[in-house]
Each structure stands twice: as structure tokens, then as C-alpha cells.
């Protein structure tokens, strides 16, 4: 999922303290999965902000809502009435959701309540790890299901750096597996070690965010 984490609370308080009534909006999709912006987190953050603002002497009313998705206009529209009653909105969805609200409810100020930072999987309860870098040129079929772009500290494409620790951990971060060690082990298990000898050319990043703001049109789906 798209992974996000709460911004520091004092940063949120600093933004909200100048307002009279704020709508705090969550999203029940990716940010709910990473326990940052779902309904549960909205109902946790709201009383926390109210308590903090009151303690500092600021009189700010905070109302709450959670949308199924903040990246779909049909769901965003559900806030139309509430948005007219507030002078600011704080979204704890990913950057996509924040921008959707900002565009639909202009000129109301929309603040991000989280920092969106990665594409992750939940490895176990309370542990999320990056899995995808959205590079736009997927080579997972050649690396036996392990992504060296997202999971190698150096994003190497043609084998390990030579710094792999004795226990198979990464030279840069001892808590992380050397992904190339895992790739090689899996290739060996499947008897396809020789496939890794084929040199991969330098990555073409033009299809990723590095290629500029992405805009994709599917004529078969347009109305």
C-alpha cells in the first residue's frame, strides 16, 4: 500500500491553531492499512489535537469524517456540505487525497496531516517494509520476485555490491536482508543461477516519476 506516517504533532498544532473550525478527514484505504489515516486514526488524532490546542489556549473546533477513498471524486464529493462549514481541512490521506480535497474545495486551505513516503507491504503486525519504488520498468520476472530497485540500498541491478555481511544482511543497514543475497539463493534453489549472468542495461527511468509528472490516457475507458 501507499505508506504514510503522522507528521509531528507540534507541526499539526502549529498549522491548525489559527483556525476556528477544522475538518479532519481520513481515508479507509492505503493509509488505514498502514495505521496512519483510517477511521481509527482519525478518532485518535482528533481528541489528541483538541486536547493539545486547548492546553495552548487555542479555541479550535475539530470535526471528523472518513472517506472510503480520497482519490476518487465520487467519494470526495461526500464532504461537500461539511466543507462549507469549516475554514480549513486537514487530510490524513496520502498526497493524492490531500490534493484531491484541495482541488475540489478550493479556496479552503487543506493541510496534510501525514508524510507519504513509500510503497510497502505489511510483513507482520506493526511492521511495514518497502517493496516497490514505482520505477516504471519492472524486472521482478528476472530477479525471482525480489525487487533490487526498492530493496537494495544502492538499487543495484547486476548483483550484490560485495559488502553483504556474513549473516546475509545489507552493508548499509544491518537490519535489512541483502536483497541480492536472497535473489541469488532463490535462483540457485530453482537451478537458474546462470540467468543472473545476463547483464541488465542501465535503467530507463523515463516511465517513472523521474520522467516528469505522469499523465496516462486510456481511450477505451474515457467517456
Amino acid at each position: 500500500m501507499i505508506f504514510a506516517e503522522w507528521k509531528p504533532l507540534d507541526e499539526l498544532i502549529d498549522k491548525l491553531k489559527i483556525h476556528k473550525k477544522v475538518l479532519l478527514v481520513g481515508c479507509a484505504t492505503c493509509v488505514a492499512e498502514c495505521a496512519a489515516g483510517g477511521e481509527k486514526e482519525v478518532e485518535t488524532l482528533a481528541p489528541l489535537l483538541r486536547m493539545a490546542l486547548k492546553k495552548q489556549g487555542h479555541c479550535v473546533e475539530i470535526i471528523t469524517a472518513t472517506l472510503e477513498k480520497q482519490c476518487e471524486w465520487e467519494f470526495v464529493e461526500q464532504l461537500a456540505q461539511q466543507a462549507t462549514e469549516v475554514d480549513a481541512i486537514m487530510s490524513i490521506a496520502c498526497g493524492i487525497g490531500v490534493q484531491a480535497l484541495a482541488e475540489r474545495f478550493d479556496p479552503i486551505t487543506v493541510y496534510p496531516g501525514v508524510n507519504t513516503s513509500a510503497l510497502t507491504i505489511r510483513e507482520e503486525a506493526g511492521l511495514w517494509a518497502a517493496r516497490c519504488a514505482a520505477c516504471g520498468d519492472c524486472i521482478l520476472g528476472e530477479t525471482f520476485g525480489y525487487c533490487p530497485v526498492a530493496r537494495c540500498a544502492k538499487s543495484l541491478l547486476n548483483g550484490p555490491c560485495g559488502g553483504t555481511r556474513k549473516d546475509g544482511k545489507c552493508e548499509v543497514n544491518e537490519e535489512v536482508d541483502c536483497i541480492w543475497n536472497l535473489i541469488v539463493e532463490r535462483a540457485d534453489e530453482r537451478g537458474r543461477l546462470e540467468s543472473l549472468s545476463k547483464i541488465k542495461k542501465a535503467k530507463d527511468w523515463s516511465n517513472s516519476g523521474h520522467g516528469g509528472p505522469k499523465r496516462v490516457i486510456r481511450e477505451d475507458l474515457r467517456q
Binding site: 481509527k40 478518532e43 485518535t44 481528541p47 489528541l48 483538541r50 486536547m51
Partner: peptide, 11 residues
């Protein structure tokens, strides 16, 4: 007990 329950009680 959820985190929000306790924060609501304090609030």
C-alpha cells in the same frame, strides 16, 4: 480498549 477510547475519556 482502543487508543481513541482513552483519549476520548481524557478529552
Amino acid at each position: 480498549i482502543e487508543v481513541s477510547y482513552i483519549l476520548n475519556i481524557l478529552e
